[in-house]
Design a protein around this nucleic acid. Structure first.
Lengths: 200, 200
DNA sequence: TTGACAATTGAACATCGTTCATATAACTCT
DNA sequence: AGAGTTATATGAACGATGTTCAATTGTCAA
């Protein structure tokens, strides 16, 4: 059979990504195989390779939807203008997201490209958009800190939060309270921002 | 052939781990296969399964040697008693280590256990030993901060540093200077510790 | 010398990512 | 309407993977 036109190319792309998404949600990163994605779509293996270069390409597109979902989540937050409080809102949402989408979030970082390859520009732009949200929350500091410093602070907070979630979900730093990630991130945010402001 | 006794069980374990190590160093995580490890040792595939339960078990043992190497690296540092300066020494060593052992370090975090399984206790103890080093560097703060708070701070710093290295090596937050990881970690350490101390 | 034991082997199995010659549905043109 | 072209879809086939286990064979104690 060929050219069924049951679905447009765009629909097929979405179907493949959704199939991959549900596989990962239900069974984790290792459960994602090209054959299972194809079966779940009701198409043959080869079809996947009409849509994506290879399985890495598929995973990148899947991960992109996770970045989008996170982005949507974080943009619902309304800033008060109080930097510490706003950054805490962001970080709590981030932490909620990672714990509610554990397998999808792990897929973001467990995946590594074949050596030599780099992530596509459109993907990196999505990461920039997330950083922009943090920068926006830090914006009130502009009166006392340079634009450059704010960019740096956004990256520090973002990376650190990533590290906390990464170790809190995958492993165990669980010696703390019932919700170690929140606890650690609050400590990070409070003290880091206090440090930033004390030099004004 | 059988029972060659060319090597003791302990020797075989070390040979397997070393073979796996060099495969990852030279070619990255994806280049690690049971067959290649066996070939590199001069043994048959099946022998690996006399030594390890499965490939995950082998990787955990390999990763443990990486943790040991990092531990050895960090314990050579002599503390001055100045917390900020000592934590910076630690973080710079950590960053050096990750960049000089990129593939090994990535293997630590790219690897995920089959679902339901957890890391063995002896492995988690190695992580605790690393956290202990950070706690030791923070010890002078005991006069102004509770033991509990110091443990928390060690975990915040450790996780955050991990996050910074993770995003700096694998991806790109490269908008900053020639050495973004150092730059970000310095900002983290300076401001976080300033925050901790300002409440004394 | 013999028998029991333990270490080592590698063929076999199911599954994986990927390729590509083949088949056919849909569109174009006369 | 019919013929020719193009784009899409297929799935058998390939090489490589992790893992198992019956068979083989070196080593030791009796």
């Amino acid at each position: 059979m060929a050219r069924r036109y049951d679905h447009s190319r765009e629909e097929l792309l979405q179907m493949a990504i959704q199939a991959a998404r549900s596989l990962i949600i239900e069974e984790g990163t290792k459960a994602l195989t090209v054959r299972k994605v194809a079966t779940k779509m009701g198409y043959a293996v080869g079809t996947i390779y009409n849509l994506f270069n290879n399985v890495d390409d598929l995973i990148i597109h899947l991960n992109a939807t996770t970045l989008d979902a996170l982005h949507n989540n974080l943009t619902t937050i309304v800033f008060s203008g109080n930097v510490e409080s706003d950054i805490k809102k962001l970080s709590h949402s981030y932490i909620d997201f990672t714990f509610q989408n554990l397998n999808l979030w792990n897929a973001l970082f467990e995946h590594s490209l074949p050596k030599g390859e780099t992530l596509p520009d459109w993907y990196n732009k999505k990461i920039d958009l997330l950083l922009n949200i943090v920068e926006a929350a830090l914006a009130p500091l502009k009166t006392t800190i340079s634009e450059e410093e704010i960019k740096k602070a956004a990256r520090v907070l973002w990376s650190s939060l990533h590290g906390i979630c990464s170790l809190a979900t995958a492993d165990k730093l669980k010696i703390m309270t019932k919700d170690p990630a929140i606890e650690l991130s609050n400590s990070l945010v409070t003290n880091y921002i206090a440090g930033l402001q004390q030099f004004k």
